[in-house]
């Protein structure tokens, strides 16, 4: 077995934690818990970034870590909590697929992602290249979570988790995106979040519910 330095082992462990949290989010139906899970995922991401920054001496990664901490661990969860309280959406209704089937599909997705990542990882030369597969898996799992939920709130959380995965993927493949892009993405997420918050209130005023199937009635009648 190849000997891996301890720091990288820690990064790997963080990666595994991210994946574990993705699965936990996939099976969780309480929206409040989802937010906590998202915040934990952000914290793990922050930790992984710090570790990589420490190991590779890439200073801009420290800034990314700080950004992650401020935005994904503190501000967004706080915002989401406020939204949940004000909108009174503590539970998502029964998801479209039952939990076991969702998890099984999740497993298939992980196999797919890992298989996909092996050739990519072979090309990449970064220290954390073996975690690319996990990053892809996190993105796809978050995507699947968005598909299987009915409530707008859980979909937003899925969206944020997907962004986490994307960020982690970029980090493992190329030590993060250029700073400008990263800041841009962070700003995008922030704005998207705020807009969605406003949007939620609008939806609720219109339909008295955040259940997204009401949006289906918006299509044009033949």
């Amino acid at each position: 077995m190849v000997h891996v330095p301890l720091l990288l082992q820690l990064v790997n462990t963080c990666a595994a934690g991210l994946l574990l949290l993705s699965f936990a989010m996939l099976s969780q139906r309480r929206v409040v818990t989802l937010v906590y899970l998202l915040a934990t995922q952000g914290a793990l991401l922050c930790l992984a970034t710090l570790l990589l920054a420490w190991r590779t001496h890439q200073h801009h990664l420290y800034i990314s870590a700080a950004l992650t901490l401020g935005l994904k661990v503190m501000f967004l969860p706080w915002l989401l909590h406020r939204l949940i309280r004000r909108l009174d959406v503590y539970w998502d209704t029964e998801p479209l697929l039952n939990t076991s089937v969702t998890m099984l599909l999740g497993l298939v997705i992980v196999v797919f992602a890992f298989g996909l990542a092996q050739p990519i990882a072979a090309l990449s030369s970064t220290a954390a290249r073996s975690t690319i597969g996990i990053a892809i898996a996190v993105i796809l799992l978050a995507f699947m979570m968005m598909i299987t939920r009915r409530k707008a709130m859980s979909q937003v959380i899925g969206f944020l988790s997907m962004e986490n995965g994307l960020f982690f993927g970029a980090m493992s493949a190329t030590y993060g995106m250029p700073m400008v892009v990263e800041l841009g993405v962070a700003l995008d997420v922030l704005v998207a979040m705020l807009v969605l918050g406003v949007f939620f209130f609008q939806i609720r005023e219109q339909f008295d519910s955040l259940d997204l199937h009401h949006l289906e009635s918006l299509k044009e009648k033949p």
């Binding site: 890992f114 298989g115 996909l116 092996q118 050739p119």
Partner: peptide
Amino acid sequence: RAFVDMLLPI
């Protein structure tokens, strides 16, 4: 072989 090594544990 990628994929095959992942499928075998399944």
